[in-house]
Design a protein around this nucleic acid. Structure first.
Length: 271
DNA sequence: GAAGGCCTGGAA
DNA sequence: TTCCAGGCCTTC
């Protein structure tokens, strides 16, 4: 599932491939993913240039000329692919074509948890979920992060998944960060020692940075813009390793449920 | 703060 | 045939 590193990888690739390209047309095959009216997309997008591509949390922002932003959230199974055509056109919901390219940008999403939004470039107009996002992980001052978390009673894993606390973490990188910091996912935030919370902030930044350098994790559906797979799944230490031995102590990795979500951890290393 | 709903393909 | 995966949202 695309989290911060996967989205960041796509954004870099999109910026490189689409910068200054003029959009010649769009095709909407499934309007249910659109959060703003279909007619607005159809009227406003053709003819505009792509001036910048950015990211906030797991949201991709495609800045268009004359003050518009096209937002993509990939949900669980969303993919953005830049190709002349796709081998399989199933689950393709949205397509952009360009004036000076034979390639088109395909938005494909099997489970349709993603969404596509068109807004003005004024912050008050951004999607609510974007406006409410917490800081990017590395924009948290470490001491401020520790103090904030110390004041919360929720389970630590739930806090990490809350996009209003820190933007961009999902199940994979929350589990990996907690493992590196030696914190049990069910531990109440307020009872984790400050030194460990400081280590957690550092673990989050490190694991995300390493994943970005690997082009993200390809578990089910995530792919680069050209369809290639990411590589960081090879380096997961707990996620997807239930029953396997902890890389540090050999204890089998355990899986538990936390408000409907699975959490993988080492029962010996994480307290 | 917890739980259910959306959604589909693949595994059990 | 049933269950499971989990982004985010709504509801309790």
């Amino acid at each position: 599932m695309p989290e911060l590193p996967e989205v960041e990888t796509l954004v870099t690739e999109l910026a490189c491939a689409l910068g200054n390209q003029k959009i010649s047309g769009l095709e909407i095959r499934n309007p249910s993913l659109l959060e703003t009216p279909r007619s607005w997309f159809e009227k406003e997008i053709p003819g505009r240039k792509i001036v910048r591509v950015g990211r906030r949390g797991k949201f991709i922002s495609v800045y268009l000329s004359e003050g518009l932003v096209l937002w993509f959230h990939l949900g669980m199974t969303g993919q953005l692919l830049l190709k002349e055509s796709l081998p399989s056109a199933t689950h393709v919901h949205f397509i952009l074509s360009f004036e000076d390219s034979t390639q088109r940008l395909f938005y494909r999403d099997v489970r349709r948890f993603g969404r596509i939004v068109l807004t003005s470039d004024e912050e008050e107009a951004f999607p609510k979920a974007v406006r409410e996002l917490g800081p990017e992980p590395w924009d948290w001052a470490p001491e401020a992060f520790v103090s904030f978390v110390k004041g919360r009673r929720a389970r630590i894993k739930s806090l990490l998944l809350d996009q209003r606390v820190v933007a961009g973490l999902g199940n994979i990188y929350a589990d990996e960060s907690l493992y590196r910091a030696g914190i049990h996912p069910l531990r109440r935030a307020e009872e984790v020692p400050r030194t460990r919370l400081s280590r957690l902030h550092q673990s989050i930044c490190e694991v995300l940075q390493e994943a970005i350098e690997c082009g993200g994790s390809s578990i089910d559906d995530y792919l680069h813009l050209d369809g290639a797979k990411g590589q960081f799944q090879e380096f997961h230490q707990v996620y997807g390793r239930t029953g396997g031995g902890c890389v540090a102590c050999g204890t089998p990795i355990r899986k538990i449920k936390l408000s409907g979500r699975s959490s993988s951890y080492c029962p010996r290393c994480q307290k």
